[in-house]
């Protein structure tokens, strides 16, 4: 537990520094975009948050799979620990996208495929959280939550491919695994930095959240009493 504590502090502080440095770099030391001007700079919040909102769901689904098949209790704790943080990042992604939409598209909300599927992701996170808290029996709650989290994972490829499958107001991806990024290197490097930093901050949030969950569920165990 003490090693985890130290690792957690290391991850949190180093990723905070990485994120702040990338933000300063991106906000102050890059040129404005040739079309969008300064408003493009919200990319340094919007892209990391959107990326994390989907990655967190995938990790939730993987943990659910591990719980259903091997009945590893820690995996179940991880599923319910990730859910609120996933909801938070999805909320940040939706809000920053709306704020970005006003100066660029001329609207803050449209029912296009990308925006709607992201809203569904947000509602799914909230649904999973409230479902889990509506049970008094933790084991039943964990089982149902894991099954639903796995089924809901179908939404992730839909969000990802929505901009390619349908015509949307949202533009298609700038950074892909296969092609050269369509974002200039001078803007790309601070963006990658902000994604790494944001990732680390979220990982440390997940660590705190799962620590809370372990304490909550194992509070009667003797090792917890010794630790506290």
């Amino acid at each position: 537990m003490f090693q985890v504590e130290r690792a957690y502090k290391f991850i949190l502080y180093s990723s905070l520094i990485i994120y702040i440095v990338s933000l300063i770099w991106g906000l102050l030391f890059t040129q404005e975009d040739f079309v969008q001007g300064n408003s493009y700079r919200i990319i340094y919040l919007h892209v990391p948050a959107s990326f994390l909102s989907q990655s967190l769901y995938i990790s939730m689904a993987v943990a659910s799979f591990v719980y259903i098949v091997w009945r590893v209790k820690l995996a179940a704790y991880l599923v319910i620990s990730i859910a609120p943080i996933g909801a938070l990042t999805t909320f940040i992604a939706l809000t920053s996208g709306s704020i970005w939409g006003i100066p660029t598209w001329g609207t803050w909300w449209q029912w296009d495929a990308r925006i709607t599927s992201t809203l569904i992701l947000f509602i799914m996170y909230l649904g999973l959280i409230s479902l889990h808290s509506s049970f008094s029996n933790y084991e039943k709650a964990d089982k149902l939550l894991s099954w639903l989290a796995i089924v809901g994972a179908i939404n992730i490829p839909i969000i990802k491919k929505s901009v390619d499958w349908w015509s949307t107001l949202h533009q298609s991806a700038s950074i892909t695994l296969t092609d050269k990024p369509s974002i200039d290197p001078s803007m790309l490097y601070p963006l990658i930095g902000s994604m790494i930093g944001f990732f680390g901050i979220i990982i440390s949030l997940v660590i705190i959240s799962s620590k809370y969950q372990i304490f909550l569920r194992e509070k009667n165990k003797s090792w917890i009493k010794e630790y506290v």
């Binding site: 040129q31 969008q36 493009y40 001329g106 533009q171 369509s182 974002i183």
Partner: peptide, 17 residues
């Protein structure tokens, strides 16, 4: 009744354009 701008996935500084 309403006109919205759609932008593409290209981001670059004006000097490069």
């Amino acid at each position: 009744e309403e006109v919205l701008a759609k932008h593409d996935e290209n981001y670059m500084p004006p000097s490069i354009e």
